[in-house]
Design a binder for these strands. Structure first.
Lengths: 193, 193
DNA sequence: GTAATAATTTGATATAGGTCAAATTATTTC
DNA sequence: GAAATAATTTGACCTATATCAAATTATTAC
């Protein structure tokens, strides 16, 4: 069974939060489409408004922005997670975030217009959004705490914990910018012990 | 007109995000209750599960946690904002966050059970939650960015910007722990220029 | 499979901001 | 409104991590 032919895994994801009626299942299946990205491919360019949200089946996507000509990684997304440029996607305005593929990635995507249609016609989708955002919320708070009062090493250890399944697949430079430390420091942290 | 007698301001807040039916208005008015806190008063103790969410009319509440016996400020909330211990409130489990009043504060509160009732019976409340969480989301991302790669001074400048209306009312030590810098450093930053 | 390019490591400094300690100033409390 | 307590400031010193530079290793493209 090829992921290109089925929306099974993503429906299972929704069912972690809400019960899906047959009607909603079929609407979702119609509106969610498969897509794949080559390693290094630019998934979304910040010069546009972000109109698609991607749900990852396999691989890793990264959100980043440019500061003083350098890419700063914002966060990494692995299987079973949604990625988009949040403010751009929700507010339909431009924002600073780019998305690219750290490795070959298989995903689904939904267009913002389809999502709005679903929100308007299936109140349980609003609930899904509320509940799934809640979990992301917790991660944000934890991350904020891991960035205050902690040494570079503690930050890295925390990073390994939050990204336990994918951290070893992310290039050092991207990890360093994610943590707000230099590559050199991160390299030395990895070298010791 | 005393805020103790009316839920007008909070209804206006909801209407920034959704249209309120008469039925929902009356349900909200019945379930939302006024409360006030003295300066320094503990609003919520982390030893309990957080069952109330507070909407501030006047004053400042602070969320903090204890690390190595010291209070670390997580965030500050002024007028027109909700405060609770997010994970505790939503997951009905204990978490690390305390809430106290930095100054005399007038607020409303709603019990989590009433909120659940509203979510279950008024789909527009789900929408309200989704939309209002979205704005908080943006603030979190900005804060994460302000904490990476910025000097102590830049962090403080960013803090002044995000809390432009209340920053001068928050004691130095609380600001320092919020920013993840020492009191001494913050004092020096304030002294210069 | 070799050349070109990119990523990572290693080394030698420099510095922002931490720590500890004490002095000063502001705020409570009775 | 004086005494007690808490908050903030100032000073001296130290350390973690940044910076700059160059060497090494890994990856990509032809």
């Amino acid at each position: 069974m090829n992921i290109i032919d089925t929306t099974e895994n993503i429906l299972a994801h929704f069912e972690k939060f809400i019960k899906l009626s047959e009607k909603l299942k079929s609407e979702l299946s119609q509106r969610i489409k498969p897509i794949e990205f080559k390693k290094g491919e630019l998934v979304f360019d910040a010069k546009h408004i972000c109109t698609k949200s991607y749900f990852i089946i396999k691989g890793i996507l990264r959100t980043y922005f440019i500061k003083n000509g350098k890419e700063i990684s914002e966060y990494f997304c692995g299987a079973d997670e949604w990625v988009n440029s949040p403010k751009s996607f929700m507010q339909r305005e431009k924002d600073i975030y780019y998305i690219d593929a750290i490795e070959y990635t298989e995903a689904y995507f939904i267009h913002v217009n389809d999502l709005v249609y679903l929100f308007d016609n299936f109140p349980e989708m609003e609930r899904y959004a509320r509940l799934s955002m809640g979990t992301v919320f917790g991660h944000f708070m934890e991350r904020i705490n891991s960035m205050r009062f902690t040494s570079a090493k503690e930050k890295y250890v925390h990073f390994q914990k939050t990204y336990s399944t994918i951290y070893h697949r992310i290039p050092l430079g991207m990890v360093a910018s994610y943590l707000g430390i230099t590559q050199e420091t991160l390299s030395r942290i990895r070298a010791e012990k």
